[in-house]
Computed example of a mutant assay.
Amino acid sequence: MADDGQSGTDRSFFSDRISIEQVEEGHTLAPKFDSSGLITCVTTHADSGEVLMLGYMNEDALTRTIESGEAHYWSRSRQQLWHKGGTSGHIQTVVEIRIDDDQDAVWLRVRLRGRQASCHVGYRSCFYRTINWNKAQSAPTLSFIETGKVFDPSEIYGDAPNPTIL
Rank of each mutant, 00 (worst) to 15 (best):
Y56T: 01
M57W: 05
M57F: 11
N58Q: 08
E59T: 02
A61I: 04
A61Q: 01
T63E: 01
R64G: 00
T65D: 02
T65P: 03
E67F: 14
E67G: 08
S68Q: 03
E70C: 04
Y73M: 01
Y73Q: 10
Y73T: 05
S77I: 10
S77M: 07
R78C: 09
Q79M: 10
Q79I: 02
L81Y: 01
H83G: 00
H83Y: 11
K84M: 09
G85I: 04
G86N: 12
G89L: 07
G89D: 07
G89H: 07
H90A: 15
H90V: 00
H90N: 13
V95P: 02
V95S: 08
E96R: 13
R98L: 11
I99K: 02
I99M: 11
D100R: 10
D100T: 14
D100Q: 06
V106H: 06
W107I: 06
R111M: 12
R113L: 09
G114H: 09
G114S: 11
R115F: 01
Q116S: 11
Q116L: 08
A117R: 00
S118T: 10
S125F: 08
Y128V: 12
Y128C: 09
R129I: 14
T130Q: 13
N132T: 07
W133M: 15
N134S: 15
K135L: 12
K135C: 12
S138W: 12
A139H: 14
A139W: 05
P140L: 01
P140E: 05
T141Y: 14
T141A: 15
L142P: 15
S143I: 06
E146Y: 08
E146L: 12
E146N: 13
V150P: 13
F151K: 06
D152F: 02
D152W: 01
P153C: 05
E155Y: 05
E155W: 05
I156M: 09
I156T: 12
I156P: 07
Y157K: 00
